[in-house]
Design a protein around this nucleic acid. Structure first.
Lengths: 135, 135
DNA sequence: CTTAATGCCGTACTTAAGTACGGAGTCAAG
DNA sequence: CTTGACTCCGTACTTAAGTACGGCATTAAG
């Protein structure tokens, strides 16, 4: 009966994608994954397409898209809404660049703090904490 | 009676520090701010020191410290635990640098996605979404 | 045939960092 | 002396993205 090697139970899919079983059920409730066919009465049967979709979700998430945004992206999946997808991506990109600017500043402050700390042994208060109080 | 210009009500302090009144009460419950003296029976009276401490919390938070870590930092305030403060900062710094690496990668992917999108009008599917599916 | 592993389901819990709410008391200005 | 703005308190709610739980059914292995 099981002529296709490309079907997964929920457990297999979870393991393959490196996520928790509950996460898949959760994505289903959120509408990010379609309710799959069932076999043997009640067991969810996933296809390679489901696996790809799960990977898509995880990639987009890594790129900073929230699950709501991923859902939006998935709704544009037919390729006729290129502009909208692009707008979403541009927004994300702007956010990422802003975050980069901030993180570079933070890195500078933190690394200065770390080098200052304990070089000035004479001072009574920790220079790191003192600096933070002035920051 | 009010001979000091350096006292705040909770509302004034909140406004001065740019936070919500409830946030101050919340920080008090978390032990990040001391319970202040009360005047007129029951009104919290804050000092410039409280204001400084609040600024400290917000700076540290901006640098990526969680409230728990801020609390730890504040416990080291006497300056005799420079090493520990430094260790915390070094940990944060490592985290920030890792995040920077990731964000740079993400920026590259996203900006390529954005430029690819809609340049290849011939394709049926949106290149952005297709790329994400392969990512 | 039995037992351990899965699967199913709905519901509740988690974490972080606040925000909001409702009712009561108080204070300063007009 | 009243009105509107603060303040007090404890409790409950919020958001995001899951995770965990408990009870029951099914299934694969030994």
């Amino acid at each position: 009966m099981n002529y296709s090697s490309e079907t997964f139970t929920i457990g297999k899919l979870a393991k393959a994608a490196g996520v928790n079983v509950e996460t898949i059920r959760f994505y289903q409730r959120r509408g990010l994954l379609p309710e799959p066919d069932r076999i043997h009465g009640n067991i969810r049967k996933y296809s390679a397409a489901d696996f790809a979709r799960l990977r898509f979700i995880k990639s987009a998430q890594y790129l900073g898209f929230s699950l709501d945004e991923v859902a939006a992206l998935l709704r544009l999946e037919d390729g006729t809404h290129c502009d909208e997808a692009r707008a979403l991506a541009e927004e994300k990109l702007a956010g990422v660049r802003a975050k980069l600017v901030d993180l570079h500043k933070i890195e500078a402050v933190l690394s200065r703090l770390v080098t200052d700390c304990c070089t000035a042994q004479a001072t009574i208060t920790c220079p790191l904490i003192a600096a933070l109080q002035r920051a």
